[in-house]
Design a protein around this nucleic acid. Structure first.
Length: 575
RNA sequence: GACUCGCUAGCUCAGUAGGUAGAGCACAUGCCUUUUAAGCAUGGGGUCCUGGGUUCGAAUCCCAGGCGGGUCACCA
């Protein structure tokens, strides 16, 4: 990057960097800086009478500075929080030489720099627990200016809120917005709670392929890639269901995987092209058993994250306390519309759908119609966690037929805050039925359904060897994280949500301009005229460019002697 | 993909019938004290997203584009 593109403040920081080096201070020292406490620990445990926390060391980033002559206050931020550091000239400079305070600390350090501090904890006159610095060491010089977010009495000033900047520069978001750091800590705690919960029950955490020759386990469009050596098309997995079931065939009684899945579909505040699910399969169980498990597990997550089963989500308080409400899909529809559709034929369903505001198209079969009616009339009204059970068979090609109700399968979803948070079923283990269901999917694909499932011959072979009756579930980690952290969008619970690439506008180096016979002192001026790359120069009108750069020379008092118009033309002609 | 809103200093944001571009914080210089979104004084800092058009003149009006946000459609 050319220095011409740096802001004034960035130039000043680079200058400070040079001055530090001239003073013999390494702005990026290699040696370990030994820390023996942190901000939160001090604030929680310091006791003025006990005089504890003397001669402590901690490290962190400077978040604000208040300099008053020979004394100064610095807010230091470490992973745990912030603590004030009192820096007094004569406390950190023991001899006559006050350079460390007057020059290094006051002039050459900035907000954003990472420092290590050793000293004693005390309480200031205004009652704030602080560290009196006896030693101060620069650990990393920051060359970019952080957004300055200030806070007083819970009121936040100049908050760093622009979503584009926050997502593209998540590191800045994390530095400046402690509540954002907290969201991701909660997310990890959520995952760890699940992992512990399932591991303690003896289920095995496993890993299965992300690159799959045949994708399956869900209705979705995949990402496609290619393996050179095999000269073979591979897909990024859209689900890991079929591999985990193979492991159940292989004899494990319970397997689960936290899996990054990829779906080549739209993006919005509930969808990212890559997302995380946990899938769990347990042999000899059915979907009723699985409902009890998920209830218990999610209740425990709420307790671990919030200390209560009640969680504020938007304007609602959601209570995850067991037991959750249970409805069959037909019951839910009847509950919210007063209409019993359980005995209707396709024509009646179509008519009912129209009356309820669904616009059915001709391709929709009975199952799809029921699903649409449910989505339109029920789903968004289900705020408290609710199980919806017994789905139409058409929508569920991997699910066992209902033990007693024709046309339905043994499947449930848990709906919470109007959105599905998990999807589970008694797994289909009848290989003959499974083959027939795949063949129905192939028919759908022929009719143009891009989300229809592929026929996975090896998976069929596996269950032909015999798979025990099995209960399976998938839980969207991102969606559940949104609920558990009261996040309004999936981007808020992903460190690096997918975004269009940032415009880079890569500038060409000085040497490329020099090669055209342009004197080095004119290169920055040409850049300033908006020409960063040779291709831009190529398209520039010589008259205008000549005019522009002479103007800039004059305006900035650069004092250069102007090139002639012919000079400018000759640069452009060489391209 | 459709509709809609936004893009101005490092950050948060004002602004103008179209006429030299503003504030606060941050930055620089100075004063000063165990201070509290510190204070006072002075100063520097901007291709007002990009490109085209209208105009004597565009950051402002018009058109196109880029990138984001929101809503809707598909989907977890």
């Amino acid at each position: 990057m050319s220095h011409q593109e740096l802001s004034e403040q960035e130039l000043i920081r680079r200058q400070s960097l040079r001055e530090l080096e001239e003073l013999g201070i390494d702005p990026y020292p290699a040696a370990e800086f030994q820390v023996n406490t942190n901000s939160a620990e001090i604030i929680e445990n310091y006791n003025a009478e006990a005089k504890n926390y003397q001669d402590i060391c901690l490290a962190g980033r400077i978040m604000s500075r208040r300099i008053m002559g020979k004394a100064a206050f610095v807010e230091l931020q470490d992973q745990q929080g912030r603590i004030q550091v009192y820096v007094n000239r004569d406390e950190i400079c023991h001899g006559e030489d006050k350079t460390l305070y007057n020059t290094v600390f006051k002039k050459l350090l900035d907000i954003g720099d990472i420092i290590g501090v050793c000293g004693d904890v005390f309480i200031t006159q205004t009652g704030e627990t602080s560290v009196k610095a006896k030693e101060l060491k620069l650990l990393s010089k920051s060359l970019r200016v952080l957004p300055i977010v200030k806070e007083k009495d819970g009121q936040i000033y100049d908050a760093f809120t622009d979503p584009e900047l926050r997502y593209r520069r998540r590191y800045v978001d994390l530095i400046v917005n402690s509540h954002v750091r907290d969201i991701f800590i909660k997310r990890t705690r959520l995952v760890n709670t699940m992992r512990d919960f399932l591991s303690q029950r003896g289920y095995l955490e496993v890993e299965t392929p992300i690159l799959q020759p045949v994708y399956g386990g869900a209705a979705a469009r995949p990402f496609k890639t290619h393996h050179n050596t095999l000269d073979q098309t591979l897909y990024l997995r859209i689900a890991n269901e079929l591999y985990l079931k193979r492991l159940i065939v292989g004899g494990y009684d319970g397997v689960f995987e936290f899996s990054k899945d990829f779906r080549n579909e739209g993006m919005d505040r509930f969808h990212n092209p890559e997302f995380t699910q946990i899938e769990l399969y347990v042999a000899y169980k059915d979907y009723f058993w699985m409902m009890n498990l998920v209830e218990e597990m999610v209740e425990k997550i709420a307790m671990n994250l919030h200390g209560t089963t009640q969680v504020q989500v938007g304007e609602h308080v959601i209570d995850f306390k067991r037991p959750w409400k249970r409805f069959t899909m037909y019951e839910a529809i009847e509950h919210f519309t007063g209409i019993d559709i359980s005995e209707m034929d396709e024509a009646q369903l179509r008519e009912t759908a129209k009356n309820l505001g669904v616009t059915p198209d001709e391709t929709m079969g009975k199952g799809k119609l029921v699903d649409e009616i449910f989505g339109e009339t029920c789903e968004h009204q289900l705020i408290q966690p609710t199980f919806i059970t017994d789905y139409p068979i058409e929508m569920s090609p991997l699910t066992k037929k209902h033990r007693s109700k024709a046309g339905l399968v043994e499947r449930f979803e848990a709906i919470c805050n109007g959105k599905e948070i998990c999807n589970a079923y008694s797994e289909l283990n009848d290989p003959i039925d499974q083959r027939a269901r795949f063949e129905e999917q192939l028919e759908l694909a022929k009719r143009g359904d891009e989300e229809a499932m592929m026929l996975d011959e090896d998976f069929l072979r596996a269950i032909e060897y015999g798979m025990p009756p099995t209960a399976g579930i998938g839980i969207g980690i991102d969606r559940l994280s949104m609920i558990m952290t009261n996040a309004p969008s999936i981007q808020e619970v992903l460190f690096f949500p997918q975004m269009k690439p940032e415009k880079t506008d890569l500038a060409d180096g000085d040497e490329k301009f020099s090669a055209l016979g342009i004197a080095s002192e004119w290169i920055p001026i040409i850049r300033r005229a908006g020409i960063a790359r040779l291709e831009q120069l190529k398209e520039a009108k010589p008259g205008k460019l000549h005019n522009d750069i002479c103007g800039i020379n004059k305006k900035t008092n650069a004092g250069l002697s102007n090139p002639t118009l012919d000079d400018v033309k000759s640069w452009i002609e060489k391209l």
